[in-house]
Amino acid sequence: MRAGRRLVKVDEQLEAVEFINTAKSIYGLSYRELSQILGIPESLLCRYANGDLLPSLDTVSVIKDRLKSMLDLTEVLRRNVVMKDGFVDLNNVLFNPYILRLYQRRIREFFSDLPINKVLTAATDGIPLSVMASYALNARLAIAKQYKDIATEDFYEVGYIADSPPRRVSLYLPKHLLEKGDEVLIVDDIVRTGRTLNALVEMINNAGAHLAGVSVLISMSNSWVEKMRDRNVRIDIILDLGSMRT
């Protein structure tokens, strides 16, 4: 077997092992419960999960097929996002490395065919997601902040009205992080009104770059979507809660 084919095989085997550990972590499953789901003996699952043994390609197919629906990122978000009094708590998502890895795969699936070389987000909650997106696409990361970094002199600056609480917010990005001709993916954890997104789009335009895609973990309204689609931009909304808002 050629070295390239061997690497592909090992990648598939390691991915299946990661699926086992991901399902075990996210759903709190025991090896006995996983064994019942997969039809694979507990002893083997334990050896796979610990890295003592890699599953055969036939077993890889079984693992992926039977865990596919459980590890669908939209379903995982439904189970882990906490909503209380109109607020969304993403702590169970943004600080879980297994869920972040699922997000990384989602980014690769939806955007890897585009020539994206920059991932742009606004600090701070979008940072874990944008790091995974940057890694998935082999793209550089640009983070717009509400303050100026002391070591940088030249910035893009855009302002918008934030609604909670109502106030004027400015975002700053060092100019060397976003350049003319860049193909940009915007990453956002939660979109409510789309104002932050619009500010990031303005920043991209000011740089002479091109908006290629938008990845949104949770959308709380649909008002911003058509405006983005009018720009001929690829949009991936992983969990749409717009219809659930009161």
Rank of each mutant, 00 (worst) to 15 (best):
G4R: 13
V8R: 15
E12Y: 01
Q13G: 08
E15V: 00
A16T: 00
F19N: 04
R32I: 06
Q36C: 05
L38V: 05
G39R: 03
I40E: 05
P41S: 14
L45Y: 02
R47Q: 13
L53H: 03
S56C: 01
S56D: 02
V60T: 04
S61D: 14
K68C: 00
S69L: 08
D72G: 06
D72A: 08
R79I: 01
N80C: 08
V82G: 12
F87N: 14
L90N: 07
N91Q: 11
P97C: 08
Y98Q: 05
I99A: 07
L100S: 00
R101T: 09
Y103D: 03
R105L: 09
S112N: 11
D113Y: 06
P115S: 10
I116R: 04
G126H: 04
I127W: 11
I127A: 12
P128G: 04
P128A: 08
L129Y: 03
A133V: 01
A142I: 00
D149F: 09
T152N: 15
F155T: 03
Y156H: 15
Y160G: 02
R167Q: 13
V169A: 14
L173Y: 07
L173T: 05
L173M: 10
K175Y: 02
H176N: 13
E179T: 12
L185C: 12
D188H: 11
I190W: 07
M203C: 10
A207V: 06
A209T: 02
L211G: 06
S215P: 03
M220V: 05
S221D: 06
M228P: 00
D236Y: 08
D240M: 07
T246H: 14
